[in-house]
Simulated scan of single mutants.
Amino acid sequence: MSDILDTLPSDATHRDAERVFTEAGWTACGAGDWAIALRSPDGAPGRTMAVRISPFDPTGPYTAALYREAAHTRQVPQLFAHRRLVGGGDLQVMEWLEAVDEADAIEFHQYIENRDESVAELVDIVRRIHERALQELPWCGPLDQNPSNVMRGSDGRLVVCDLFYADGPDLYATAAAHPEVVAERIPESERRFMTEIPLAASGPWDAAERESMRAGLAEADGRERTDPDVSGSD
């Protein structure tokens, strides 16, 4: 896996990442609203991995921080690599996970919400990182209690993933109606591909709407470049 990442240039985008992993034999295994997933070709027990590739994911670094800081709890996925991609994209290589029964997932989320003793250390780390994300990220949402975010590792343990997310409906509605607000709060370099997220769960996304949003943001960026007072206005 490290040799694949070594082939990615410093200016790699989500498209480059998907191409490089696909050429190395990784195969598509899923897609959500924010990212696609590819599975490693190595099927040996305990060694199968997945890579999550997103064109635009502001919360990616916070998720990676959670996986690293809470690794000793064994209640988060094992993270093998994390890399930010040009344009606001995010790449995470982690252990392969399996789905769990919805009842088990809901119970695990309840443990987290109530800071059950069995997950107390995990919860403290989650809350600390989420608080930082709320302070630093525009449109950072609350903790995601979707049952699909609880999965099972290769050793059978329950883990929680993707707890942090951007408030997509509000963010994208603002980008469509008031692109200057998004342009002011999120640098262009961190949202260049925000109209290319898969939206596999909530979509499809009308092509004309995407193009209109891209044009509005580009126009807003143009105003910011020519009018130094725009970024400082209320």
Rank of each mutant, 00 (worst) to 15 (best):
D167G: 00
R19Q: 14
R68Y: 03
P228Q: 08
F164L: 10
E180H: 12
S10Y: 07
S54Q: 03
V51C: 00
N146M: 01
T13C: 07
D155C: 11
R84L: 06
D6P: 01
A183N: 05
L66P: 03
D155G: 13
A31Q: 15
V126L: 13
R132N: 11
L66S: 09
A208N: 05
M49N: 00
H109F: 15
P228S: 09
R83W: 10
A99M: 03
S118C: 06
T73R: 01
A17Q: 08
L79F: 06
L171P: 03
Q75K: 06
V93Q: 05
W34P: 01
V126H: 04
D11R: 10
L38H: 05
V160S: 01
E107N: 08
E131S: 14
R223N: 04
I106V: 15
F164S: 05
A50R: 13
A65Y: 01
P77R: 06
R225W: 08
E69L: 10
A65I: 04
R68D: 11
A44H: 12
W34Q: 11
D170Q: 14
E219K: 02
W139P: 08
G232E: 09
N114M: 11
E209T: 08
Y111N: 07
P58H: 06
A70G: 07
M151E: 07
L158P: 02
G156E: 09
V181C: 01
L171W: 08
H130W: 15
P142K: 06
E196S: 11
Q75E: 10
P204K: 09
G46P: 00
N149R: 05
C161S: 15
P45A: 14
E211M: 00
G222V: 00
D167Y: 08
L171Q: 02
M49K: 14
E102N: 01
L143T: 05
E219Q: 13
G87F: 08
T13I: 11
R128V: 01
R214L: 04
L8H: 12
Q145Y: 12
V160N: 03
A31K: 13
S231G: 13
L158D: 08
F193T: 06
A218N: 14
V126P: 02
A173C: 05
R15Y: 12
E117K: 13
G216E: 04
T174Y: 08
R47V: 00
H178C: 03
L217P: 04
V20H: 13
A65F: 02
R223Q: 09
E136N: 07
L217N: 04
S202I: 06
G232S: 10
G46N: 10
L79M: 14
M94V: 00
G60N: 02
Q78L: 10
L85S: 05
F193L: 07
A183V: 04
A37K: 06
R84Q: 11
P138M: 07
R223S: 00
G46M: 07
T7M: 11
S189E: 15
A31N: 10
D170E: 13
D116I: 02
V126F: 02
V126I: 15
G222D: 01
G216L: 01
P77V: 06
T195D: 01
I125M: 04
C161W: 03
A81W: 03
G32W: 12
E107D: 14
R84S: 12
Q92A: 15
